[in-house]
Design a protein around this nucleic acid. Structure first.
Lengths: 324, 324
DNA sequence: TTGAAAGCGCTACCAA
DNA sequence: TTGGTAGCGCTTTCAA
């Protein structure tokens, strides 16, 4: 491995000088600079990031700890977070957060152990204490916990939009399928809003909830199977995410229902595939770009000691497509 | 920030001793150990990962550089790579690789600058030289370049399976839509196999290729639009990935074609949603688990100086579902 | 404009 | 079983 002192020797200067040309920190004799540059090229030198951030006591990297890359919502968010961070001159390290508490903590600590200057993370139950005690600036996405700065969509608004839309399209018995209703998840508000709206309008409804199999996999298929097995008289589904909604759609079609004539479906998230299936999914769009830029800017502000609001929420949008 | 010497002071021992209890390296007096542990707890100490790996000259982390997290294929692969690495006691840092060469290089160098001990990456044109010159053990996925150790699916086999299946189902004019045919991509073999099989069987065919808009976004919709605009007499589509295939499916349905009666469709990859749409997609399944475990084990071997084959290929599988 | 040298927080070797 | 201490590769004063 070529080090800075190899380069220094080669160029006949001190390591300090090499460091200066690397960082462009101060005026340097054009001649010296050229010698250093040549030496670097000749030795195919690239600086050791780790040593550098140790010395600086700081690095230009934030961590993104997400629940599951297989969920398009998070994958897309990661994509946007990375794009946004990069536009601010920062890098991001993505890491999956195990769903069990201990592993989550160690994943978090790995990152916070000077690997990154700030962390954007999802919230999982029980982490409140250690996130709030962490010395690494942290913002949570889609959590309503008070343990940290948070950024989320307006899930109540989303729930209201979806429900009212279904009702306005003539639905009289609506089924809602939620993800796991973990405490402190902002998405729970979707369900609450749904219930409230149905009751306000005197619409019949039924609630289903997916759960985690072995604390890892979602049992979507099982729950959807039950929905269609136990009910024959419903005319609307509000699913808490688009994967769930797509699976409802394909189950409905395969059972001979017509969508949207017999059953109308509204999803949530507006992931890329929602527009690619047939009929394309009516859904509640979360503003990925805004969500991630807000999260990124918030950590960055936190890192720089800038005051930021503790809780930030952004609006959602109803996207009407073919399933309603 | 609490450092190891704060802990040492608190526990009245040397930093060396603290380091020992952290790493469990050698016999330690039970009493001393307890004092250290207590001090660590009291000060809420967690070791600085960066300093540690600088000192060790090594870390338990591999990097995964992928083209785009929005592509389910890569997201799923990342998920599996992470799972597999973890089972070997290694962590993985995921980072998106920009599609332009310079940015790609700097992303690669960021990681290889001691951030990680090894790298798994996709291959993009022009990187051959610097990957082969890199001192960081690197394995590429789905590349046929000679510049590094590579792991990929048997894309020729996949192309053959897909084409023969379509033919055996009675297709007489088949359209193939490929991704971008970048040089050194193993996926190009799918197209070549398709052409060869069609010609061998005397089947009419036509080739379409997607391209990158502004070197960033895929122009899938445009190409698919053309396919259906320019052709009315085809009865089969072989798409080079499942996203493409799903979009073909929904376009076909929206134009009134019946699938599979009028048009049969075969995709590639078997990403999660392929089974969730209706009709569910017939596709070529890549063995994600095998692909990622092979990649992980290969870098790990490389890191440990163990001899490994330069090129490894694993079989694919035809998954027959509703679109054929 | 440049160099010498003191750290950054940790590990690991050599002594005790 | 423990402590002292010399690095790991880099940045950043302080002097020259």
């Amino acid at each position: 491995m070529t080090t800075i002192s190899d380069v220094a020797k080669e160029a006949n200067v001190s390591t300090a000088t090499v460091s200066r040309v690397i960082n462009g920190s101060s005026r340097i004799n054009a001649n010296t600079e050229k010698r250093v540059l040549d030496a670097m090229a000749k030795l195919n030198y690239s600086p050791n990031t780790i040593a550098r951030s140790l010395a600086k006591g700081h690095n230009d990297c934030i961590g993104f700890l997400l629940p599951d890359l297989n969920m398009p919502f998070w994958a897309k968010l990661a994509h946007e977070v990375e794009k946004c961070a990069k536009s601010h001159g920062w890098n991001v390290m993505i890491s999956s957060a195990p769903k069990n508490l201990d592993d989550y903590c160690s994943a978090y600590n790995r990152l916070s152990g000077s690997m990154v200057s700030g962390i954007i993370t999802t919230y999982i139950g029980g982490t409140a204490d250690f996130i709030s005690e962490s010395k690494t600036p942290t913002v949570t996405i889609s959590s309503i916990s008070e343990c940290s700065y948070s950024v989320s969509s307006n899930d109540e608004q989303g729930g209201i939009f979806a429900t009212r839309h279904l009702i306005s399209r003539g639905c009289r018995k609506i089924i809602h399928i939620s993800g796991e209703m973990l405490p402190e998840r902002s998405s729970n508000a979707r369900t609450h809003a749904f219930v409230k709206e149905c009751e306000r309008h005197g619409i019949a409804y039924k609630l289903y909830e997916t759960s985690l199999v072995d604390q890892v996999e979602n049992d979507y298929a099982g729950v959807i199977g039950n929905v269609f097995y136990e009910n024959t008289d419903f005319d609307g589904i509000f699913a808490s995410n688009d994967i769930l909604a797509s699976m409802c759609l394909s189950t409905a079609l395969s059972l001979g229902y017509r969508v949207p004539q017999d059953i109308k479906i509204v999803g949530y998230d507006d992931i890329p595939i929602s527009a690619m299936i047939y009929p394309p999914l009516t859904t509640i769009r979360q503003d990925y770009q805004k969500l991630s830029s807000l999260a990124v800017e918030t950590v960055l502000n936190l890192i720089n000691g800038v005051e930021v609001p503790k809780k930030q929420q952004i609006p959602v949008e109803l996207i009407v497509r073919g399933t309603t």
